[in-house]
Design a protein around this nucleic acid. Structure first.
Lengths: 192, 192
DNA sequence: GTCTGTCAATTGAATGTTCATTCGGTTGCA
DNA sequence: TGCAACCGAATGAACATTCAATTGACAGAC
């Protein structure tokens, strides 16, 4: 019986997150990841065929965490606008509470690793992209303006991401007020 | 007399941009950069002390290109709103016309390389950040809402960046209409 | 106009390091 | 007894960086 809460695989994920946040994909050698995860290098290769696979699996792990933090347990009785606000706020709060994860995703999306993954999300399995669905629904049901969904996504995510990046750089906290203002501007911009 | 328009340093920059766009900071060895730039490896080290220096200088090179493409030759007689629209549109058009540069900057900002650079921009020399100044001015002169400047920046850049990223991934063109819509939403969101 | 010395620009093979990955062996559980 | 989990030293490849040697431009001397 293992007394640790996290299993090996998760320890490895967390350690990888730690290094990639601090030093990028370079600067994150398997040897250090292993040491910090309190695991042997060989053990990583027991779970993941290669470093690239590790990183791509880590992406799915993060994506899943994010998705459930944002979309789980939303009262279906709420109005679309209320849901919109909840999703928006949860998204930001989750990122702010998981800076390493945010930083990893931010780097991942800009990197060539994502290439392998994106057909999955955009072409074959759009249902994996919950935000896409949520906004598409809002558009279809006339809660949102008739804009391309990718434009809606860009409005929804772009501001928050850039703001959080900025806060990480300058090491200043995001003010509650700023989140409210962002939400108001964006909602007014996209609402029908 | 050299018949080439670009000098060696610029050839090296362009080659580096080429590889980083396609393969990221990893996947861009000095040997390949040199070959593609039609230059010997040693020559790169004649101009740049190290790969890291090359990348950071490349950042300033890109930043300068961007700044002048966006801010040069704006008729000072124009209203703030007109200037805002010009800057906004130029920014997007420039990125769309320089995908490799966009992709490099996108990766650079998410990477630890930026750490060395950002004190320069944010703390010591805010005047290097032209967008910051432009938005700060708009705020001071009551053309823009009284929001934190970083929030204004996030609104201004976030949407476009996310949209362009998305277009690179899906290899679909940005529609003229989308730029108009983005501009309208953002301007309405931030105008006083 | 030619020679000569100087120094920057350029070259790419050689060096040494870093790192992903492998593998032969150990442990522990069923 | 078997098999999965685990270990970490050893391997080999990839890579950033160095450096001794070559070229080319040009200023001053004659």
């Amino acid at each position: 019986m293992n007394i640790q809460l996290t299993d090996k695989k998760e320890q490895i994920f967390l350690s990888t997150l730690h290094f990639i946040h601090l030093y990028g994909f370079h600067g994150s050698p398997m040897s250090k990841i292993a040491k910090h995860a309190e695991v042997a290098v060989g053990s990583i290769y027991h779970y993941f065929p290669s470093k690239e696979d590790l990183i791509i699996e880590l992406y799915w792990y993060c994506k899943e965490k994010l998705n459930s933090a944002v979309f789980d347990k939303i009262d279906p009785e709420l109005s679309y606008q209320e849901k919109f606000e909840i999703v928006f706020r949860r998204w930001i709060v989750f990122y702010l509470g998981h800076i390493e994860l945010f930083s990893f995703l931010d780097q991942f999306y800009g990197s060539p690793f994502y290439e392998e993954v994106r057909n999955n999300v955009f072409v074959q399995k759009p249902e994996r992209n919950k935000l896409w669905h949520f906004l598409e629904l809002g558009k279809r049901e006339k809660h949102l303006k008739d804009l391309s969904v990718r434009l809606l996504i860009s409005m929804f995510l772009g501001g928050p991401i850039t703001l959080i990046r900025n806060c990480i750089w300058t090491k200043k906290k995001v003010e509650k007020e700023e989140i409210d203002q962002l939400l108001e501007i964006i909602w007014n911009g996209v609402k029908y």
